[in-house]
């Protein structure tokens, strides 16, 4: 028997008040434990999809179903969801510890009770020595790590990431890619990862959903069968190149076929 998907997006559409059609008739299922990349040019609505899944934006049409979770009357599931933004999105006035503690603090967990879990999360991203630093004292990569630690602290079932590494240099990005994959394998999360990098999506994902713009829609769904764990050797393999080419071609044909606005 096939396991029910974690979430099922059905015919969702979003039109902004200025008339821009951000999404039209998008349908897809996200399987439990999968690492799905949403790949597409800017303006194709990939971030909008993420916000809708997180319950941060309203739909114009369609719906998001959560077959394995209980849903409250606002349509929000009871499973833990975390969001990692493109910018580190840290509270500048708070220490690294306080930033990571925040999601637990909002649930009413005191500093001393949260201490162990915060330190565990900081350990996972390799920042245990920086608990009392302020964000401005950290490099871009370290800030992103804090942001990831904050997302980990609630032990999420679903991790939504909106181009989290786009602003980082390549060396830092490769390192964080590997760290993220390691954590994903360890905790069996479901990850939806928005990116505009073909290479990043092919390296990380078990599945690449290629999107096109105006209106935002799915144009190709690529299953990346390469086994995990993946390492830097995978980056130079023929299989990896094949997936990159496939995704790249889908992206190009989508952009060529798009209406010439």
């Amino acid at each position: 028997m096939e396991e029910a998907p974690l979430l099922s997006i059905q015919q969702i559409g979003k039109t902004f008040s200025n008339g821009t059609v951000a999404l039209r008739g998008m349908t897809m299922d996200i399987e439990q434990g999968s690492f799905v990349s949403l790949l597409g040019p800017s303006g194709c609505g990939k971030s909008t999809v993420l916000k809708i899944i997180a319950g941060l934006g309203n739909l114009t049409t369609g719906r998001v179903n959560w077959p394995t979770s209980n849903v409250d009357n606002l349509g929000r599931p009871d499973c833990e969801i975390s969001f990692v933004f493109q910018e580190p999105t840290l509270m500048q006035w708070a220490t690294v510890f306080e930033n990571v503690w925040l999601p637990l603090r909002l649930k009413g967990i005191s500093r001393s009770n949260a201490k162990e879990r915060v330190e565990e999360a900081l350990d996972m991203v390799g920042l245990h020595d920086f608990a009392s630093s302020y964000p401005r004292e950290l490099s871009g990569g370290m800030k992103m790590r804090v942001s990831i630690a904050r997302a980990l602290i609630t032990r999420p079932k679903l991790l939504l990431m909106d181009e989290p590494f786009a602003a980082l240099d390549e060396i830092t990005r490769f390192k964080l890619n590997n760290d993220l994959l390691g954590l994903w394998e360890k905790f069996n999360w479901t990850v939806i990862f928005v990116t505009h990098s073909v290479f990043e999506s092919a390296y990380l994902s078990s599945r690449i959903v290629v999107m096109a713009a105006r209106p935002g829609r799915v144009v190709e769904d690529i299953d990346v069968g390469a086994p995990y764990p993946r390492d830097d050797e995978f980056r130079t393999s023929t299989a990896y190149n094949g997936y990159c080419r496939e995704a790249s071609n889908a992206l190009h044909s989508a952009m060529d076929a798009g209406d010439h606005l």
Binding site: K51, A54, T89, M91, L102, P103, L106
Partner: peptide, 19 residues
Amino acid sequence: NLRDMMKLYGASRWQTLRF
């Protein structure tokens, strides 16, 4: 984005104000 995050984690009005 931080406001969105507060909403995602179900922060109350008072918590959003305070934190």
